[in-house]
Design a protein around this nucleic acid. Sequence first.
DNA 1: CGACGATACGGAACAAGGTTCCGCTTTGCC
DNA 2: GGCAAAGCGGAACCTTGTTCCGTATCGTCG
Lengths: 193, 193
Amino acid sequence: MADTGGTAAAPRKRADARRNEKTLLEAAAAAFIAAGVDAPVRDIAARAGVGVGTIYRHFPTRADLVVAVYRHQVEACAEAGPALLAAGGSAHAALARWIDLFVDFLVTKHGLAEALRSDDPTFATLHGYFLDRLLPVCAELLEAAAAAGEIRPGIEPFELLLAVGNLCIGANWDPRYDARRVVGYLLTGLRTA
Amino acid sequence: MADTGGTAAAPRKRADARRNEKTLLEAAAAAFIAAGVDAPVRDIAARAGVGVGTIYRHFPTRADLVVAVYRHQVEACAEAGPALLAAGGSAHAALARWIDLFVDFLVTKHGLAEALRSDDPTFATLHGYFLDRLLPVCAELLEAAAAAGEIRPGIEPFELLLAVGNLCIGANWDPRYDARRVVGYLLTGLRTA
DNA sequence: CGACGATACGGAACAAGGTTCCGCTTTGCC
DNA sequence: GGCAAAGCGGAACCTTGTTCCGTATCGTCG
């Protein structure tokens, strides 16, 4: 919702507010790395040297903060989809490569996959943002692969995205569990029989 | 651990203690259905008409309570494995059937799949119990299927179990996500190429 | 049957984390 | 420089888990 290039009158925030917002993003990014996306609000505030009220003013829900921190990477992932498809090679390979990017992203963000699948309403908009941004890309790749006859038709992008997200949960807790390998099994299972 | 036929001296609990334990199990089962396995301790205590201290005395961690409530069903699932294998039919079919049982179990217990994959130390023994009981069964089924040449060799039962558990997360939140179908894709992906 | 030690109970009290709210400060503009 | 609006800080409150101890209950023994 809040975005730089909006059509409506952007009331131009105060200088200190913009400074704080930037500081907060950096502090949150650091806290997320150190303690996962569930890092206590007070910790993030302390890192940024601001009060907790300031966090809530800039980012009403945790989801807003998480989206703000990872927006660039999600955008990059979304843009990589069409690029992979255009780069030649089989559509299934492009799909697999793209899913790999997605998995890499999730696996390196402690707690993000968990948050994405949390029923906590706090994370509803997080879920929404990822879906808004990535679902069309996934759909495009799936359609291309299906059109090429490389995967069975009828696979729903929504379901695939959620499944892959789920498989990334707990990816760093036990070396015996490798999310990439398991996702690989899943993708193999989509191929035409 | 605590069992009726133990070898050590069973100090024979007081009558009211046994009564409370039973009441608590029923209250917890009801609370789990109504609010998931994360139902607040106070709610469970209130349902049972006891103080919170009584819960902690009987079930020191939430995992103990969850295990106690679902023990029978987990045992049943564990015992179904060899039975399916003995019942004839392909080993892969037996594996698929068994995984289906497991998925059905998880999907109908709100929050259980999430708890199984939680890094909260409170749930460590829950994780441990499921693994202790189901890993050998899963391993047996996998070996049979691999021996029959129906699935590729080298699939780790640990990884499969966790993957299936993960795919059951959030199974009831959106009708567009069907855990059984997705697990089906995964199992297909295990077949020999 | 009554007393007494052991066992178990209840719930107040404490800890941790999220969220709200309001008096005070800073900013931007006249 | 002064003033209104925007923004800030953090105390206070809520929810939920966990601990602890004074009190009540049980079971046994005299």
